[in-house]
């Protein structure tokens, strides 16, 4: 039984159809990514799961309970950390966390807050007003709030925005550690593809309110089948015979002494290509094989090419 079951979720804003019958299962303990270009329906989905937006139709079951008729009890067992939202700016970090800790009915609250502040390395900010924090510090306070009630389901909406690379890395480690320790199910959205690939076991790729594919990052990247092989030859090489090579999808000039080979079927095309290159007699000075990244898939989805 999935921890989160979404069935045929639809939401329309005027003439814009934000969700077109979205269905999704997320298993207990999964770190699940929700990817897609702006307007794909990620935030609408998350906001419906939080009860901030009411869907036009469809059903949601969380913890094996219908969300509509049990949303208060269900929300006690989940939480959210979203960028671009805040808590009360005039209150200190500690006070804000005390407020939310009480709202969520957290036991041993001061100890819990101390533990989270330490985990996200912001203990020194406890007495600072939220409005005086940098965006990166603010993001980490939001994450502390998200973990306050040891949620069984945590929704992280672009929660690492504004963090410098060092803190972002530490935050990812902290997220992974907390998720492992508590078996928290995490639904994660981000525009940082490397982050999604690193953290998420499975990813749902959304486009125009529908799920294009749910799979691991490795499998999703295969939505773009081709590989690109870039080869640089020694100056003075005769590239003409190589350019006439058959069985390669496309060959492009890539500078004076370099070629780019696009392979639509790498499993069949790569080996003959490499054999031909070594047999051509032109000394190779550099070679680079690039596989499609999650970002490539993202761009193609955003441009409607997939």
């Amino acid at each position: 039984m999935a921890l989160l079951e979404i069935r045929a979720l639809r939401k329309r804003y005027g003439t814009v159809e934000a969700l077109r019958g979205l269905s999704l299962d997320v298993e207990r303990g999964e770190f699940f990514g929700l990817l897609g270009p702006n307007g794909a329906g990620k935030s609408t989905t998350i906001n419906i799961l939080l009860g901030l937006i009411i869907a036009d139709s469809g059903s949601i079951r969380i913890f094996d309970h219908d969300f509509t008729s049990n949303h208060v009890a269900i929300r006690r067992r989940m939480n959210v950390a979203a960028a671009f939202t805040s808590m009360n700016g005039v209150l200190t970090v500690w006070e804000n966390l005390m407020v939310y800790g009480r709202i969520y009915g957290v036991k041993h609250l001061p100890r819990k807050i101390d533990e989270l502040l330490e985990r996200f390395e912001i203990t020194d900010l406890a007495k600072r007003r939220l409005q005086h924090l940098s965006s990166g510090q603010h993001t980490r306070v939001t994450l502390c709030k998200g973990f306050l009630n040891d949620p069984e389901l945590l929704l992280l909406d672009e929660c690492t925005v504004g963090l410098d690379p060092d803190i972002a890395e530490k935050t990812r480690r902290a997220l992974q550690a907390v998720q492992r320790e508590r078996k928290t199910t995490i639904l994660f959205t981000s525009h940082n593809m490397n982050e999604v690939e690193e953290l998420c076991g499975r990813i749902a790729f959304l486009s125009q309110g529908e799920i294009l594919r749910v799979d691991t990052a490795t499998h999703i990247k295969r939505l773009i089948p081709h590989q690109v092989v870039e080869v640089a030859f020694q100056a003075g090489s005769d590239l003409t015979p190589i350019r006439q090579l058959h069985g390669i999808s496309r060959i492009e000039q890539n500078g004076d002494h370099a070629l780019r080979f696009i392979l639509d079927d790498p499993t069949r095309q790569l080996d003959p290509l490499l054999r031909h290159l070594t047999q051509s007699g032109n000394p190779i000075v550099d070679i680079h094989v690039s596989r499609p990244t999650l970002e490539d898939v993202f761009i193609k989805v955003a441009r409607g090419e997939l």
Partner: peptide
């Protein structure tokens, strides 16, 4: 900008 967090809570 606390409306989101408040109404996402129980």
């Amino acid at each position: 900008r606390n409306v989101y967090n408040l109404f996402a809570s129980p």
